[in-house]
Design a protein around this nucleic acid. Sequence first.
DNA 1: CGTATGCAAATCAGA
DNA 2: ATCTGATTTGCATAC
Length: 343
Amino acid sequence: MSVDLIGFVGGRFIPNVTIHEYFRDPPSIIPRRTMKNLSPDNSAEFSSAVNFCAGNNFGKISARTDADAVCEKPLVSEEKRHSGRQTFPSKRILHDEDVLAPYTSTSGADGAISLHTEQTRNRVSELAILPIEGETIQKVALTTTRDDRMELEDLADFAESFVRQRTKFGVTQANVASAVGLLNGINFCQTTVSRFETMNLSLSNMRKLRPLLEEWLIYAETMTANGCSTRDLPRVLSRSVFKQGTEMDSDSRSHKITQADHSASAAGQFVSASGPCLRKRRSRTNYNVLQRETLEAFFKQTPYPDKETLTNIAAAVNLHPYIVKTWFCNRRQKVHKEERCGS
DNA sequence: CGTATGCAAATCAGA
DNA sequence: ATCTGATTTGCATAC
């Protein structure tokens, strides 16, 4: 009787949030964490924890106090539940293979949680937790299908092994970044390498960047095999790239990674034609008039709210702090854009 | 010194 | 097509 929450967690969780208790030792960095024994013994707490995981529905099902909250189609009436093609008991024992997943309903029950059993594992969905803690906003991806979980585990394994090999080569993140940039004719910075290694990127982003780092590993291994000392590796790598100057002219070198991304996408490199497709983005939040007015009022007062203020504002408009933070970022962008246009 | 992170800018993308 | 919420990325700098 346990549920695996497999995800990448780059930081700690909010104090006072129930799920926090399920992380026995929340370290500052957890590249990959499998939480076992997330027991629904205390169903209120469990419901609260599950609720916390619901990317699009922060804080809305915490009132549900029995295991029904984590059952398939929990908000469907008893009648409908049994008349449908599939039936799921309103309460049942959780199994090891059960995976938490968001339940998106077409009838206003959005955000509730469903359990994806082996029978339903092909459902396409992804959970993204965006908790906020101190000054750090982190992401957690929860997978729903066996394939998804395998991919995530695979990515985590790669990230781990990448760090190991990079360290073995005696190369810094910055070295890797410049070499990868030169190899691919793109900009690539230390920040991105760092985020990749700690899996502090979205799943789609991880998936996109992985081939670049794999390519670099091959180059590094080749150079080392050819007698290049690890100390000279970054420099030699760069030089070997410059030797292919005919195809790697300054123009192509100046391409941005976003452009490289476009061509890769166009080639279908990162788009799987079949199988589960992880959601790329959180669905766009719709603010009501009151929320908008409230946010505007707060913005007028404090364009740069600190964490505490942000939390208070979030509570005032009944939205997650992360959502509010995004709103403030975009609102400031709007101001800057207007200033530029005005001058 | 190397790595991690808050923020802004640029860009993507949904309503 | 526009507005604006969400994501990606790099800079500056904290750690």
